[in-house]
Lab assay of single mutants.
Amino acid sequence: MIVFVRFNSSHGFPVEVDSDTSIFQLKEVVAKRQGVPADQLRVIFAGKELRNDWTVQNCDLDQQSIVHIVQRPWRKGQEMNATGGDDPRNAAGGCEREPQSLTRVDLSSSVLPGDSVGLAVILHTDSRKDSPPAGSPAGRSIYNSFYVYCKGPCQRVQPGKLRVQCSTCRQATLTLTQGPSCWDDVLIPNRMSGECQSPHCPGTSAEFFFKCGAHPTSDKETSVALHLIATNSRNITCITCTDVRSPVLVFQCNSRHVICLDCFHLYCVTRLNDRQFVHDPQLGYSLPCVAGCPNSLIKELHHFRILGEEQYNRYQQYGAEECVLQMGGVLCPRPGCGAGLLPEPDQRKVTCEGGNGLGCGFAFCRECKEAYHEGECSAVFEASGTTTQAYRVDERAAEQARWEAASKETIKKTTKPCPRCHVPVEKNGGCMHMKCPQPQCRLEWCWNCGCEWNRVCMGDHWFDV
């Protein structure tokens, strides 16, 4: 396979590697080409510095992935760790964990309700045991953590790749202090920090972006993250068709209702045909949960890209028209025109101005929308079919299609509260000796007794199943 190397943020060049090629071997190839010592090179990928003893497969490097290699003399205490030698983080029983690669970060837990604080980093599902597709590297999971809308060759929703760059020099040479644990960490600028490894760059702020994971991409090709779309790892039924499908869209209502993408497309087109989208002054033209839940309008309007190009163009047109109407304007009634106009409040005669090729020149009556006339309008008909009709959803289907309910059931079956801080902690095999993952707590306690870890627990039921 081919990976592209950008040395000291210059133009990239291809390097041929195998899945079992080590990072140090990659350094040696680059060092020979650039005429520099291999031990002064640092390989940066997806916000993480890659260790010498890791392989291309370990690092989730795919065909035509772009890695950054910078030349920086080692500072005291760094060289041993980078070589894969006596790194205290690798000691058996050590409590410190390697910062998780962005290629394996899962933010789907952050669609849980606000009262489930902490689960994004504490609760991990076991539903990723799908067998890898044919042709994928051994052991590589097909679980997708992110979804994007690819405006490039795909023109559809695709699995996405999370990447990070330095907000100062805009190069992907920043190593994160810690990985993101929720969508806010990724979507809110300057929320996460790190250290830029580019020479002479003092940058410390992280800037995240997404790429389409279905095809090789260049540095400049980015895609918009659709953070309401998630892999259906909890096997929730769709609120409309009641099938279990994946991926799904999880509405931001209190129940976190789930809808499959085909039904979401149908829901949007139906509402669009009836012009029953909601115009929100802050958000724009949007839709609420299909069950009509309060405070559930979709905030990231790129989710409506699921409509496809033709329907999305209609959505944008109707949204612009609705904006004009909300501002007190009118639409030209001549067939084939429909231009938005903003006449004076007491102006009865409205002319669709033909300047700049935008208007048709038609003069019409503001009251009856017919060709302009003197005197009273002959008839004014009330528009028919403008009443909002509820999208029919079966109550039982709505009850079963809740992301929140599956989460709470998982928590109930696989977790116990920490005796000190009461945060839910998952036990997935292993011994009875637990350690609270909350940095402010870190209590060592017994899963069996529910009390602080002691010699009695150690001698009596340390390794009970």
Rank of each mutant, 00 (worst) to 15 (best):
I23P: 00
C169K: 00
K427W: 10
W54Q: 14
P216R: 06
K427I: 08
V350E: 03
W453L: 03
L162E: 00
T125Y: 07
W445T: 03
F463G: 00
Q282D: 12
D274M: 06
D184Y: 04
C169D: 00
C436D: 01
K151I: 09
S407D: 11
S378A: 08
R275E: 00
E207L: 06
S9T: 05
G47E: 02
S218E: 13
C368Y: 02
T21F: 06
E16D: 04
F208Q: 00
S223T: 11
Q34Y: 13
L331C: 05
C441M: 01
G135I: 13
N448R: 05
S116I: 04
P333H: 03
Y372N: 05
A397T: 10
F381P: 06
G459P: 02
D60V: 06
D243E: 15
P343R: 06
G160Y: 02
T414N: 08
W74G: 12
K48H: 06
N254E: 14
V380T: 08
E322A: 05
R348P: 05
G336P: 05
P294N: 07
I239M: 09
R234M: 08
R104M: 09
F13L: 04
N58G: 12
A138N: 11
N58M: 15
T83C: 11
G139V: 11
G319H: 11
L176H: 02
L112A: 15
I229E: 00
C431N: 15
A120L: 04
T415N: 13
I23D: 00
S22Q: 11
A401W: 04
F381A: 07
D53Y: 04
V105E: 13
A379T: 13
Q78I: 14
P335Y: 11
I188Y: 08
P247S: 04
L226V: 05
Q311N: 06
H279R: 12
E452D: 15
V278N: 06
F4W: 13
R104Q: 14
S384W: 06
C154N: 00
I188D: 06
F463C: 01
K32N: 11
C196Y: 02
E16P: 12
V105T: 14
P419R: 04
A291S: 08
Q317F: 06
H433I: 03
W447Q: 05
C337H: 03
D280L: 12
H68D: 14
G319T: 07
T55G: 03
E310L: 08
V465F: 15
I23L: 01
V250Y: 02
N81L: 15
R348C: 06
L50G: 01
C241P: 02
Q178R: 13
P73W: 04
V5L: 04
L26Q: 00
S127E: 14
R271C: 10
L123N: 13
C337N: 03
D262S: 04
D464I: 15
L283V: 13
P99I: 11
E374C: 05
Q155D: 09
S384I: 12
K129A: 11
N81R: 11
E367C: 06
A379V: 12
K299Y: 06
V330F: 06
L107P: 14
S181P: 01
S9I: 02
S131L: 11
T21N: 05
R6Y: 04
S116L: 04
Q40L: 06
